[in-house]
Design a protein around this nucleic acid. Structure first.
Length: 551
RNA sequence: GGGCUUGUAGCUUAGUUCGGUAGAGCGACGGACUCUUAAUCCGUAGGCCAAGGGUUCAAAUCCCUUCAGGCCCGCCA
């Protein structure tokens, strides 16, 4: 987005001093807190054990602080209020793609961070980076003048943010560069950038200090651009189909819509327990009861479970519900959404991911869970009795099989054991046993099954949908069964949301619904195998100060 | 919950197998250099080797505990 010049850029801006902000005065004292100053017990009577511990070190570089002080003494603001740039790095690159060695006559004003500085005495080459890319600056003492040039060389560092004005040209070796006529400091950085060649690699540091990761690694920036585009695409895809986007409660008195352990909190004024939502499902269906026939929510959900390469305690889903549709049509919707997304982001119908080529061209394979087990394991579960199923399970060392009480439970076990990991290409598995699907409608033909599907890609579950259960009496019974399991100690079983059941009593049209995991979608589209790579600030254990020496 | 594995200067790292008390590059600082691009050249500073304990004449190195990561398995999206 172009910015337009309204004031001339000049090195004289350096001497148009502003009042020194109070915060900078502190820098003059060069106060750098050392971690050792924070060791040892807190004040008497204070209990910090239950407070959020954090690292209280301030990482200000004393040499950079001293440079900031010197600039202030010279009447130069280290943190001016703005800069009128006329273009961006990519703007310059596009416009002057074919320029030769002679500089353009027109000035271009750019702003950004200095990524490298190569000092040649009376000439400096530097690389300036903004959101659109990097470009080389050619800075000469002749052009800036002695005072401004030496100020730049002595007091401006790699990592600082500057504004420059100059004329694009191509150097003798062919590098498109900006011949700088004016330069001013826009922000003095007080900590050093990581190494310029290897950059920042330390995974832990990249996650904890994502800002540094983004400054240093184009791959990280690209990943989160993809994430943003994914969310925009989903919004417009659903809006184009006349879905309305709503926001439903994150703080819920009764949690439901999925099987998961919740985060629990307490509201002081109401003096009651509240839960962070594990899913928006039950609220969105209330909206369908209310007469909104196509609804969706991009929902941050919270599940108090383990953290690993495909699970973060808070994660993002899109859930969509459409009245007068069933699960077949929700599979169509899901397929259309994701294949359209792949085409939009990747520009093709295939993705290279984790050593596999994933083909998203439609139609995707759809198979029942029973057929999948038949095909991948050669076991016709529904035609075998429990004794035979137990023998097969024992033979293949299927974990926890002895708890299985009927064919359907064996089916789920066998599916997870034999099939799930092998579903590499986008595949819908449908018709799940009723026991594990308390919110899905019973199958129109198959006794004991529901009209539920899950989408698998590269062995990962990407989406989950059903023909929604809208029989209030059946819903109540199934939630009662869940609640019994919960009270027996199943931390992931659902509570009974009576208000939801009563909403169904008012009548919900036949409805199809689906939830799609956005983080995992972004993983596929950005080529990452860890969810932490696609969540800006993944959950990490708070780094504690080293414990005081034990006595 | 289980297994494997990592932590050395601001960053990227060597040294750990076969204990002898830390080496480099970049960055920083000082100096030279007006078309370089991981600029180059000369010089300087910077590390109680994640924390604590143990074995030993001697520990970054071996052992134990703790802290924080990473990978894999189980469970979940």
């Amino acid at each position: 987005m172009p910015y337009f010049v309204s004031v001339p850029i000049s090195i004289h801006a350096w001497s148009q001093s502003e009042r020194t902000p109070a915060v900078l005065l502190a820098f003059r004292r060069n106060v750098i807190r050392q971690s050792s100053a924070f060791r040892g017990p807190g004040p008497p009577g204070s209990s910090r054990a239950d407070m959020t511990e954090q690292n209280e070190n301030v990482a200000f570089d004393p040499i950079r602080c001293e440079k900031a002080n010197t600039l202030i003494q010279q009447g130069v603001s280290c943190y001016p209020h703005g800069f009128e740039r006329t273009t961006t790095v990519s703007g310059v690159r596009e416009r002057y793609e074919s320029i030769g060695h002679d500089p353009a006559t027109e000035q271009s004003a750019l702003a950004g961070r200095l990524y490298t500085v190569r000092n040649h005495g009376k000439t400096v080459f530097a690389d300036l980076g903004d959101e659109t890319g990097r470009i080389q600056l050619y800075i000469r003492k002749n052009d800036l003048g002695d005072e401004a040039f030496s100020r730049f060389v002595e007091l401006v560092d790699r990592g600082d943010i500057v504004g420059v004005s100059g004329r694009p040209f191509r150097t003798r070796v062919g590098e498109l560069s900006l011949w700088v006529d004016d330069l001013c400091l826009l922000c003095k950085a007080l900590s050093d950038l990581p190494e310029k060649f290897h950059g920042l690699k330390d995974t832990e540091k990249r996650y904890r200090q994502r800002y540094l990761d983004l400054v240093m690694n184009e791959r990280a920036r690209e990943t989160f651009r993809v994430r943003s585009r994914v969310i925009s695409f989903i919004r417009s895809f659903l809006a184009d189909r006349e879905f309305l986007e709503f926001e439903t409660p994150t703080l819920q008195p009764v949690y439901g819509g999925a099987n998961a352990r919740p985060f629990t909190t307490h509201h002081h004024f109401l003096d009651q327990t509240l839960y962070l939502r594990i899913a928006p499902e039950l609220y969105l269906k209330r909206l369908v009861v209310g007469g909104f026939e196509r609804v969706f929510e991009i929902s941050k959900n919270f599940r108090n479970e383990d953290i690993d390469s495909s699970h973060n305690p808070e994660f993002t889903m899109v859930e969509a519900y459409e009245a007068y549709r069933d699960y077949h049509q929700m599979m169509d919707l899901t397929e259309g959404l994701i294949s359209g997304l792949v085409e939009q982001i990747a520009g093709t119908t295939t993705l290279e991911y984790d050593g596999q080529t994933l083909d998203f061209s439609r139609p995707w394979r759809r198979m029942t869970m029973a057929d999948a087990v038949q095909e991948y394991a050669g076991i016709d579960v529904l035609s075998l009795d429990l004794e035979e199923l137990g023998r097969i399970a024992a033979e293949h060392r299927v974990p926890d099989w002895s708890a299985a009480k009927n064919q359907r439970e064996f089916l789920v076990l066998f599916f997870e054991f034999f099939v799930e990991d092998r579903l590499v290409q986008p595949t819908f598995i449908h018709d799940f046993p009723v026991e594990n699907s308390p919110l899905a409608k019973r199958h129109r033909e198959k006794e004991g099954f529901t009209e539920r599907f899950e989408l698998f890609i590269n062995g990962m579950e990407l989406a989950n949908g059903f023909s929604e259960l809208n029989d209030p009496r059946d819903q109540l019974e199934r939630l009662l069964a869940q609640d019994r399991r919960r009270l027996e100690g199943d931390a992931e079983a659902q509570m009974i949301d009576y208000d939801f059941v009563n909403a169904l009593a008012l009548g919900m049209p036949p409805t199809g619904g689906v939830g799609i995991g956005i983080d995992r979608l972004v993983m596929l589209l950005s080529g990452h195998t860890s969810i932490k790579e696609v969540i800006l600030f993944p959950q990490m254990k708070t780094a504690k100060e080293p414990a005081p020496d034990q006595e």
